[in-house]
Simulated assay, not measured.
Amino acid sequence: MNLKIFFKYIVYIFLIILSFINFGLTLLIIFILQIPVIRKSILGRLPFKLEKEPWSKKETFEYKKNLWLDVYFPKEKSEHLILFAHGGGWISGYRRQPNNVSWYRFLVSKGFIVATIDYRYGFLNEIEQLVEDLSDAYNFVKNNINVKKISLMGLSAGGHLALYFGLKHKVKLENIVSYYSPCDLLDIWKSESLFARFAVSTTLKRLPSKSKDVYKYYSPISYVEKGVVPILLVHGMKDKVVPYISSVKMYKKLRSFSNKAKLLLHPFGDHGFEFILKDEKTKSILLKTVDFLKGDGYD
């Protein structure tokens, strides 16, 4: 290798390292600006006193190379599994965060099997790869866990992936539950959250000013038609990250096709409100979520 080519490779490597450093610094700054949101998302708990381990066993599987899922089995036999996708703006989050584990405890205590996954992050991968991960996880549990019913559930970005995958790919599901998710990705640009705008533009690798078609393509609302699975949408009306109007628009479109759908709004809820608020309204929404997952309370 001659000296010119050698230095050329050195320059390329330096530029790659520099780009990662710049990205990391940008991400750190945005995270610092959003500390209250991140803190409550990671450390929050649902407003119920729950047994620490209400499951009979927990098993961990590598559902594809370097990606894992945990399956929590209730103490009584169940044939209904909830495939759960965590939030984090497509670029962060982890299946074993305390807030997510709080959800698993709650759902398992109500008699569901819960399978919770990690998926690749949007800053190093295309959004289609994140959807592929959810698809592979769905196929894994369908083929390896003995159940008759599978529901999809997700928080925020995880709810977006659940809605998009379930509606576009038309897989066999009992229902879908989505908490404070962007159903129309363009709605994020009406948000005051710098983190939300950064997260969606990083994941889609585009800004909406020149790529509205891409934003529409990956918006679950674009795939609503007659005969989709029952869908529950939950949102706080004080959400500063994802405007609640996104769920309202989705609900109206679902009902315009006479689909079974339900919209639950908390008048004082911010993003991740169920981990912060301890009021009766929050508890009622959580219990209605369980009813919906079991097939009750459909409109």
Rank of each mutant, 00 (worst) to 15 (best):
I5R: 15
I145Q: 14
T202H: 10
E174F: 04
I188Y: 00
L194Y: 05
P267T: 09
V177E: 01
V37L: 15
K77H: 05
S201N: 13
V214F: 09
G122P: 10
L50E: 07
F14H: 02
I145E: 11
I10F: 04
H266F: 06
S219N: 03
I176H: 01
S222N: 08
F23N: 03
K77A: 10
Y217E: 14
K148S: 15
D118E: 14
I32T: 02
Y298V: 01
Y215T: 03
R96F: 13
F20E: 13
L33N: 13
R45M: 07
K75N: 13
V141P: 07
K262V: 00
S201Y: 10
R45L: 12
I38T: 06
L3Y: 09
G295P: 08
V224S: 03
F140K: 05
L264T: 00
P220Y: 08
F84G: 06
F275M: 11
E174D: 15
H235W: 07
L107Q: 01
K65I: 05
V37I: 15
S181D: 02
G111D: 07
R45K: 15
K52L: 14
N22E: 10
L287Q: 12
F14C: 11
F14K: 08
R197P: 10
I35L: 15
L186P: 08
R120L: 05
I30Y: 12
Y215E: 05
L287R: 11
K148R: 15
Y164S: 04
S258C: 06
P98K: 14
K262M: 00
S19F: 11
R206G: 06
V214S: 09
L265P: 03
K294S: 04
G93I: 03
K149Q: 12
V214I: 15
E51L: 14
A115E: 14
L204Q: 10
N146E: 14
L15A: 01
G269E: 04
S178R: 01
F275W: 07
T203E: 05
S284F: 07
P182K: 03
K249N: 09
G236Y: 06
V242R: 04
H271W: 03
A196C: 09
D239H: 07
S151P: 07
L163P: 02
G24M: 10
C183V: 12
I150E: 06
E126G: 00
S41C: 13
F112V: 04
Y217R: 12
P36H: 08
I285W: 02
V290M: 02
V200S: 05
F73G: 06
G158K: 06
L173S: 08
S193Y: 06
K168F: 04
N139Q: 13
V37G: 08
P98Y: 08
V177K: 03
Y72L: 15
G88V: 09
P74Q: 01
S102F: 12
F268R: 13
